[in-house]
Amino acid sequence: MFAFLVRRVFAGVIMLIVMSLVVFGLFFASPVDVAAFACGKNCSPAIKEQTRKALGYDDPTLVQWKDFMVGIAKGREYPNDPELREAAPQLVASCDAPCFGYSQVNSRTVNEEISKAFPITVSLAVVALIIWLTVGIALGCIAALTKGSFLDRGLVGISLVFYAFPTFFIGLLLLKFVSIKWGLWDIPEYTSIADGGVGAWLYNLILPSVTLAVVFMAAYVRMTRAFVLEAMSEDYIRTAHSKGLSRGRVLRKHTLRAALTPLVTMAGLDFAGLLGGAIITEYVFNFNGLGKLAVDANQNYDLPTIIGLVVLAASFVILMNIIVDVLYAVIDPRVRLG
């Protein structure tokens, strides 16, 4: 188990390093002069040169990448150039480890941007996960148990329809009708738990989370239904019935245990994907989460932010993969890590 963890974490770190290299390479291969962008409209060649130096864009790409990795490991200080730091010590911005870079566009470190956006994205992902897992699994079980009935067909049909709806459509629908036209729900505006308590936090998260959850929910209804039906036809379920267990107990203990195990993997990976930001939902509801941050950064050629976000999102996926693997070994005794 321990050896497995060490090996997986090691492989994950290597993967991250390779990925950051690729991202660096891609962006520096682009024809955009980042320093010119960072420096703004009324930019003289001298200021541009200074910006370039401040951000370290005068170094070769590989050196910059090395600085970035060192920043992640130990933290670093901006401006990058030691002479500039000495010339104007009052302007030095320190960026603690893990430092994802400094965004000249927003005049603050990428870490600050992420730490503002991350709680919003996590809140959204967690609430959405809870909604889609509970509703999706419950409806999936109902569909499986009433297989072939009107209810089953209805659930499967509706979930297919929702699966086909684009997220922005559902989001705009909720916003336009539920919030604006009918006034059933205030237009959501992210409120942290510290600011408004759990109630306000949850209230404002419901609409965007539902929007985000609907697509996943539709998929999970169908997957749960398939897994439960598959488990129900297993020999060991027949054995459980032959012992004289009640149908409810067979379902709760034997069938669901077998059916839900594969869902753990999928839920873990879907959740990891969402931690990188739910771009469309955040945009529709104007939540300043990681997804919106990423889109804005892209539009402004805010290179350090983009690189920081990509590395962060990738590390979530890698981390979640390891967690899911370990979890799988816990819930399936046949799986042995080693």
Binding site: R238, T239, H254, A258, D332, P333
Partner: peptide, 9 residues
């Protein structure tokens, strides 16, 4: 093998 539940002792 298939008549026993793989996840329970």
């Amino acid at each position: 093998l298939s008549a026993m539940h793989p996840y329970f002792t």
